[in-house]
Design a binder for these strands. Sequence first.
DNA 1: TAGTGGTCTAGACCACGAC
DNA 2: TCGTGGTCTAGACCACTAC
Lengths: 253, 253
Amino acid sequence: MSDQNHCRDDDDRDAGGISDNGDDRPLYLRVRDALMQRIETGKWRPGQVIPNEHEIAREFDVSQGTARRALTMLTEIGYLTRRQGAGTWVQEDSPAVRYRFFSFYDKNNERITPDSRDVESTIARANSKERLALELDGKAKVIRITRTRTRDGRPFIAERLSIPEAHFPNLTNEDLPDALYDHYQKVHKIMIVATADKIDAVPADAPTAEQLRVKVGTPLLKIDRIAYTLRQKPVEWRVWLCHLKDAHYVARM
Amino acid sequence: MSDQNHCRDDDDRDAGGISDNGDDRPLYLRVRDALMQRIETGKWRPGQVIPNEHEIAREFDVSQGTARRALTMLTEIGYLTRRQGAGTWVQEDSPAVRYRFFSFYDKNNERITPDSRDVESTIARANSKERLALELDGKAKVIRITRTRTRDGRPFIAERLSIPEAHFPNLTNEDLPDALYDHYQKVHKIMIVATADKIDAVPADAPTAEQLRVKVGTPLLKIDRIAYTLRQKPVEWRVWLCHLKDAHYVARM
DNA sequence: TAGTGGTCTAGACCACGAC
DNA sequence: TCGTGGTCTAGACCACTAC
């Protein structure tokens, strides 16, 4: 705890607050991360109402303003929803949340929620591109997954992705749902909070053309994505090749 | 001013603070907008140091925390830069700022700053797509601009855009620089703070192929963008057709 | 009506930067 | 050393929601 407050009694440190354990970051960050952990580990479940800011302040032995700052940050990154007069909840686990990084919309500007098929996964030593993308050392292994994403039963995205095997033990033995980021969070306690996409247009090569049922040379949208955790660590590299008939990818700045 | 503060004297209202003038929004928003206006109108110029938060608080007759909140918001949207121990400045007018919405990078992940040529502009009654995109009524006029964006002298983007004539008087008589958003702000006091891009891959048609010096049918990246002011008003619709050899568009979420 | 989040204040100490 | 922004507190009132 900080000693900078002139009003508090320094003798009661660690009598209910969060211990500093060598963590000299500001209080609001420590409270934020402690609350975040409760959400990520499922102690506080989606949809659940959490204690009000007075109670949180008392629990961590900080002022209401500091607790509030932590809660505001968690609201901004989408972990929490707050409503004046009502309370604070963990963000609902809706399709809109599960697919919030799947930024494809149809011609009516409604979000597309895809299905998947032909899922295949293998484990291998990371190649040079994977080591660069995922910041891995020479001996690291990766899990490679390929899928065909479909929309109303028709293939529209050829997907291939790589993730560090060390972070996702046993993943190859699990049933993989369509929404992988959601799966990472629930099963592997890894939350994706940011992505960086490199985008270009490319002609379809022969295998991709067959996979997406288009002619060779058809213009495809290529999206090359790195996904990051809150600590800015890259944990997934994926490439999408998309044939978006009557649809589009949306980017906001 | 608010009456909710138990410590302040209600009789000194409007004796130096910001008047409410029917504006019942929170103080921090009123202070934010007042400061923003000074930046947008050029009263505070890029690179200039502005008064510290105590002085701003005193000027607007609010607490330091309230002034701070306004300053923090302006920092988050890129109007200001703050450095502990040093001070607060209006954001420098660098190429990185001028082209911050031009999100193209080369193969070394360095930002591309384009040139322009073959600029043409006309004024016309808005068509139905323009009325929809820019939220205009039936009689509104628009300025249409077409340009070829070049990189090291070679064309790589075919650009066409529409803006409401009412917001940009005399623009067709002005020398247009490469960075239009910067021009909008400096000359027309309209600041672009957000964009929404719809993205897809399309084959090059004949005129575009000639403009970009590629074969008909070459895959092009198509970016369909609406640009918004801080008040969420759409003020520009632009379409880019891009042939990105050894480059890519970047989107972050 | 009770309880929640939202706004606001006054004032303290700390970390950092310029001199 | 002095001035700046950054953190933190304690406590007030307001606006809204659920009961």
